[in-house]
Simulated assay, not measured.
Amino acid sequence: MASVITHAAKRFLATQVRVQGPSAVSGGHEGGYKVWRNMTFFVAFPAIVLCAVNCVMAHNEGGHARPEFVKYEYLRVRTKRFPWGEGNRSLFHNPHMNALPDGYEEEH
């Protein structure tokens, strides 16, 4: 019975060598880093640059209007003070875009 399993295993490996090549069985990955290096330089970096240019162009168009303040009872609820400052503003508070419970701090 052991010879049947060994014979089947040898046939399977021989099939894999024919189908996928010798590197699939031996586990060799020589040159695989070149594909990832090239993808980094020719795909990833240009994509990052294009996204940055898109963000800069969208910002320069001036299309970020602040929404009108409406005092809803379920928005901007402060049940506990923030542990910094006077306790009413969040950590990354923007006085132009983030409203407090009573409205915006500065008028535009």
Rank of each mutant, 00 (worst) to 15 (best):
R37V: 11
L91W: 14
E68K: 15
E30V: 11
K71G: 08
F92H: 13
M1I: 00
Y104C: 00
K80Q: 14
V19N: 10
A2E: 02
G87R: 03
R89A: 04
Y33M: 07
G63S: 14
F82C: 12
R18D: 05
E30R: 10
L100P: 03
P95K: 13
A9D: 00
Y104I: 04
K71R: 15
M39A: 12
L91R: 13
E86Q: 09
P22R: 09
A52E: 06
T15I: 05
R81I: 05
L100F: 02
H7V: 00
V43K: 15
G32H: 13
F92T: 01
Q20D: 07
R66P: 01
V70T: 15
P22A: 11
F12P: 00
F12W: 08
Y104H: 05
P101F: 02
V25H: 06
A99E: 03
P95G: 02
F41L: 11
P46G: 01
N38P: 02
P22D: 06
C51F: 13
P46Y: 15
K80S: 10
A8Q: 06
E30F: 10
H7E: 08
V53P: 01
E68D: 14
Y74G: 10
N54Y: 06
Y104V: 00
F45N: 08
Y33P: 00
L75F: 14
F41Q: 07
F12N: 02
R11N: 06
W36T: 05
E106D: 09
Q20P: 00
T40L: 14
F45D: 03
N38T: 08
A58Y: 13
R18T: 05
E106T: 11
F69M: 09
G103F: 02
E30Q: 08
A2T: 04
V77G: 01
E107M: 12
A47M: 13
E105K: 12
H64N: 13
R18A: 02
N94H: 09
E30G: 05
A9F: 08
R81F: 09
E68R: 15
F45M: 10
Y33W: 12
V35P: 00
G27T: 05
P101M: 02
K34D: 12
K80V: 12
H59G: 08
E30P: 00
E61Q: 15
G27S: 05
A47H: 15
G31A: 06
L91F: 10
V70C: 11
V4I: 06
T79A: 10
H59T: 11
C55E: 04
W84G: 02
Y33K: 07
A44D: 08
F92I: 04
N88A: 07
E106A: 05
A47S: 14
E68A: 15
F45Q: 13
R18V: 04
R76M: 04
H108V: 06
M57W: 09
A9I: 07
T79G: 08
R89N: 00
M1K: 01
I5L: 10
T6I: 11
L91D: 01
N88R: 12
L100V: 02
P95C: 05
A52T: 06
P22N: 07
F92V: 03
R18K: 07
R37N: 14
P83F: 14
L75R: 14
H29M: 05
A99Y: 01
